[in-house]
Design a protein around this nucleic acid. Structure first.
Lengths: 211, 211, 211, 211
DNA sequence: CATGAATGAGAGTTCATTCAT
DNA sequence: AATGAATGAACTCTCATTCAT
């Protein structure tokens, strides 16, 4: 009686776990995601998850870091080819928006993490969050230096953008339902481009010198 | 050993449970809040929680409904004495902001609920959320009618305001820490008035007719 | 604010509880019957149940005793007008059968109690059970004395009758379902008279002198 | 403090749980059997019960199915070497009787299950019950075909046999007590052979052609 | 008589985590 | 690298019962 020992590539298994975890965590939240389910989903033994990532919390952090990293890469890549701060801002907003809408689980994750004021955010995670913010701060600085933007409090503007886009993504199904049943306008049919375009234009107007 | 005879006051006990639950839920989120802990905190028997609120979920909904109700009351009360849509907008933002900052658990709760795209939001809860949004929609409508505001997509503007303020509240301690350790500006010292004033001015500018 | 104090007749309340309890216990068994449900069903406060009957167990015993008593009365009443042991036997079987079928919850109760070999049956209950059996023993004795019945082991014959009838009653819905779905004959359509008649004839034949 | 390392033998643990559960369920009934107690009895962690059998109900069904299966095997094994329907009947009765008396928990379980008219008997369980009954029906059929048995309603005769034997087993201790304290004859000293012999002879006589 | 608030003990179940193999 | 058996702690929820009013 030979037990068929699954021999997978270590890297592959580790990545498989991370990807599945990302999906699960964002779909069901931290607590409602069970390691049992994750293991089944990966067709891997539960113990393997603990072998690669020390704990559920450890896995969770790995997920968030990876996700933040990906956004960062996407945004900073685009940022390089921009000429003006306004273009940079546009690129920032649109890249984040398209990323958020194509990975709808992601904003949910970030929002949860941020709104969890009580929990100590671990250092690594914290640093990755700051990296993205710094990138945004730099855009603002350049804009102020070149007189494109006035009266900027970067933290607030930053949250204006992220807060809006995140909420638009996470509430999508909710908004669709609300519009079905009632006479209220929830922008249910707005697509990414419309939304990100609107947000960009409004933020730009908001930051422009008054004539 | 004398058994301490407990208060027999339905209203007080029920309210005590609700208030403690609000604190716990917003501090630790739904899953990490345990009914055992809540009972201890109330110095009441665990079974009492189920006596008044049928289930953990039932209690949670009661909490959210109460919280939404309170915001709604605060905002709609102020709204009546305003003359212009612009004043109404200012009142809306500032009332929400001051309420959010003085009840910092609230935004955490709302963000958590909204970002939990998977969970079916129950009907009652859903209706209470819509009530607040309708109030905002009306302000926008009046503004458009009187040519104060142009190019308004109320849902997006609504989330701009709420998203920003919620994030500013929930990330407060995070931002303070970040500024301590590094050279970045996270608006750590900004107080409510500064923030809500800034948000109001920016939103107003954003919605004004271009000259 | 005057609380409307329900003033019911003590006897009525007590009987109401007993009757409702009989229904519940036999429908759902001892454990699955909750005092809460019973109280609601009686439209009475839970504490009243404990006021009249000391405990759940006490109530349960009261129920069984009442039920046994009723059977006993029914049977012994009929028994008096019989001439021959054979007639007495017929009366015993038919009375028990009709009682069982018209109170379908009852046999379930008795079976449960009897099959619960572990639990100590309380003295009162025990005595009531014996009373019924003694009545049957006497019929058998008279039959043997008058050479109507031969080779009688009363205990076994007694259980033959009760066991059969009880099972026929309690499995009724089961048997109906079984016949619907398959080609087996479960006597699903047999009515009380047919069954009790069959049982009587068979038992009679079984006890008759061989020719 | 050395943690005692437990056996890691799936089959043994699973069987141990099943066997202990059979004992407990039949001694105390479904509701009064607690998983805590069962775990302690098995010297296994409570979670293991849920690891192997999904739920208490699942475990219960497994128990009943196993028990019914065992009877079925015993009876059908013996049945093959019989020549006449009468011999088959005798074999059926005696095998069931000896099995029931040597596994006294079994009748208790079956009676409890059957008398629980409210509970939906699950499909698997139901099928196992029918298998045994079909076997009996076949014996009756053959008897009727060969003119050994007349006027047979198999369902009723089946319950006559099972009902009688089950009650004789489950009430054993009760009957012994009753005889001690009073002048009644409860067949307390009758052994299996006497009982099954009596039942067989009576049933046989009952089914024979009248002369 | 009648009530509703309060209690304690325990129920079944889940789950992250570990360990021997 | 991979497995599945094993664990302990926690969790939500139920229930019979009591007590002050």
């Amino acid at each position: 009686m030979v037990k068929p020992v699954k021999r997978r590539n270590a890297k592959k298994s580790k990545k498989l776990i991370l990807d599945s975890a990302t999906k699960l965590f964002s779909k069901k939240g931290y607590s409602r995601t069970s390691m049992d389910e994750l293991a089944t989903m990966c067709d891997l033994n539960k113990a393997m998850i603990f072998y690669y990532y020390k704990s559920k919390q450890g896995l969770y952090e790995a997920v968030i870091v990876e996700v933040l990293d990906e956004i960062y890469k996407n945004i900073s890549k685009d940022s390089e080819i921009c000429k003006t701060p306004s273009q940079e801002l546009e690129s920032f907003i649109k890249t984040y928006a398209s990323f958020a809408f194509s990975h709808p689980y992601l904003p949910a994750l970030l929002l949860k993490e941020l709104s969890d004021s009580g929990s100590q955010i671990p250092e690594t995670l914290f640093m990755h969050m700051k990296k993205l913010y710094k990138l945004f701060m730099d855009i603002m600085s350049r804009g102020v230096d070149r007189d494109c933007f006035v009266d900027v409090i970067p933290m607030i503007v930053y949250f204006m953008i992220l807060g809006t886009l995140n909420l638009m993504v996470t509430t999508k199904s909710l908004r669709v339902n609300a519009e079905k049943s009632e006479e209220i306008d929830t922008c249910a049919l707005c697509d990414v481009d419309l939304i990100s375009d609107y947000v960009f234009k409004k933020i730009q107007k908001m930051l422009k010198e008054q004539q």
